[in-house]
Amino acid sequence: MSGLRLELGPAKEPLGLVRGLQWFFSIFAFATCGGYSGAVTFRISCFGANTTVTAPFAYPFRLNHAVFMPSLTTLCNKTWLGDLHLVGDFSSSAQFFVAVAVLAFLYSMAALALYLGFLHLYRGAGGRLPLADFLVTVAFSFLWLVSSSAWAKALTDVKTSTASPLPHCPPPSVSCFPAGVTPMGSLNVSVVFGFLNLVLWVGSSWFVYKETNFHRPAPAPTPGPAAM
């Protein structure tokens, strides 16, 4: 039979249990990174007047597009000749990390559905499906390693950029004081979830490998009736 056979047994085995954890934690990985928004705020004092300027930023962290508002060109007797931006573009690392998390979410969900509904096909396909599953799992392990490392480095650079002083503040006529940056706790958590997913995918490689013919040889063919 090649139809659906719902079996909850694989969900209690490491093969299905780890896939469920991968599905669950991949959601937190892309949600904590992709859902972030924040701002950098400075207080500017000049000629007896105080003004607060803010540069909002968010995923995918193209900080060089984040402009301080209200425009600094109207402040302090035109000390700044043009609008000021934050520094750096970290979108490639952030988008790569989120893309890996979303793809891992989709694949782990599809694999879990295969285990629960079509395990007889999975284990009865001559080892082709377990081998493909194993290769994809190894590939995702590598992608989690690369994307999490790249995003961790990019996050460090984001923090450095947003903590930089405001340029062109000649004292004593103009004073610029940092008034705060939106906390980045959720971004720190996204890095943690990235490496946690790495551990889960590396660990699941062993359980998927055990389903392949390399670890579990294909059953020998049933001998036919003896010739008369």
Rank of each mutant, 00 (worst) to 15 (best):
G3F: 08
L4R: 14
E7F: 04
L8Q: 07
L8Y: 12
L8I: 12
L21Q: 07
A29C: 01
T32H: 04
C33I: 02
G34Q: 11
A39H: 12
T41M: 03
F42S: 00
C46D: 04
G48H: 04
N50P: 00
Y59M: 06
P70L: 12
L75Q: 15
T79K: 11
W80A: 09
G82S: 15
D83P: 09
G88F: 12
D89S: 05
S91A: 12
Q95M: 12
L103Y: 03
S108L: 03
M109G: 14
Y115V: 04
F118V: 05
G127K: 08
L135W: 11
T137P: 07
T137G: 06
A139F: 12
F140L: 10
S148P: 00
S148I: 01
S148K: 03
S149P: 04
P170T: 10
M184E: 09
M184S: 05
M184C: 02
G185A: 02
L187D: 02
S190P: 13
F193E: 01
G194T: 02
N197A: 05
N197T: 01
W201G: 02
S204Q: 10
S205W: 02
W206H: 12
W206S: 10
T212N: 03
R216N: 14
P217T: 06
A220Y: 08
A220C: 00
P221A: 08
M228P: 11
